[in-house]
């Protein structure tokens, strides 16, 4: 069984990539489990085609729900769970992830799956959001970033968190790539000592598929973007080991964008 956790700045495309990678892996014949850890419960929409009830919502009234109450099968038989969490502005999403993930791993036979993907909200801002990798539920992390400063800033913050808690990262997914942006991501990748696993360009097909609540591979199976995601998924599958990333000071981070080298 392999497992990864996807981290990155909010809105960077983690959930879209997570569902597309899950779909691609399932197409390779793997039994895939996609676990959405975002309180918005939107990680699995592209697989199921709609929102599914979240584990934590179910646990409000049933402390010990059976697996079939919170695990749903979607496209290509991919298993999906949404942990859920509080509405914006109240409660504690981090605590929710701790409770939800612990419950899943206590009750679900994870060895039934070939590949588990965790879609984790934002960067590692607190202990709760780090639980997935801290407790080794996921073997390592894939960091999603675009080439803009704030996105790389968030990626660096994730590297810092992983360095602190001594957790491996597998590499970087460069999403929404632009014509001149690769140099920034490459510099960052070198400095934090993580490989770029793949480059995903901005895609109208992805936007179109998202509107249909489907993965791009399902809607446009022969498109260029689908082939890119399939190729990246294969690379992820073949990663043997990760490494603890370095992290950069704010000055070092700014140099990526402003130095003439």
């Amino acid at each position: 069984m392999r497992s990864i956790a996807i981290y990155g700045k909010g809105g960077i495309g983690k959930s879209t990539l997570a569902s597309n990678i899950a779909y691609a892996l399932s197409k390779f014949g793997l039994k895939v489990l996609l676990i959405g850890c975002d309180p918005k419960s939107d990680s699995t929409i592209n697989i199921i085609g709609k929102h599914i009830p979240s584990l934590l919502d179910i646990m409000k009234t049933n402390k010990n729900p059976s697996i079939d109450m919170f695990l749903f099968k979607g496209s290509n038989n991919i298993s999906c769970i949404e942990i859920g969490g509080p509405e914006p502005g109240i409660g504690c999403a981090g605590r929710g992830i701790i409770v939800g993930v612990n419950y899943i791993f206590k009750n679900l036979n994870i060895n039934d799956y070939d590949f588990i993907i965790f879609d984790v909200p934002a960067d590692i801002v607190c202990g709760g959001l780090a639980i997935v990798v801290k407790e080794k539920y996921a073997e390592g992390v894939i960091i999603v970033t675009s080439d803009d400063f704030m996105s790389i800033y968030a990626a660096n913050n994730i590297c810092r968190g992983l360095n602190t808690i001594r957790v491996n990262a597998f590499g970087i997914l460069y999403n929404k790539s632009t014509k001149n942006g690769i140099k920034y991501v490459e510099k960052f990748s070198r400095k934090v000592n993580l490989p770029i696993i793949g480059i995903i360009p901005y895609s109208e097909e992805i936007i179109s598929a998202n509107k249909m609540m489907k993965t791009v591979i399902e809607v446009y199976p022969n498109s260029n973007i689908s082939n890119i995601i399939k190729s990246i998924s294969l690379s992820i599958l073949n990663i043997k080991e990760g490494r603890i990333p370095n992290w950069l000071s704010i000055n070092e981070l700014e140099e990526i964008f402003y130095e003439n080298s």
Partner: peptide, 10 residues
């Protein structure tokens, strides 16, 4: 309880 710590207790 755990529920209120996650979803808020107001």
């Amino acid at each position: 309880s755990e529920n209120e710590l996650i979803f808020g207790g107001e």
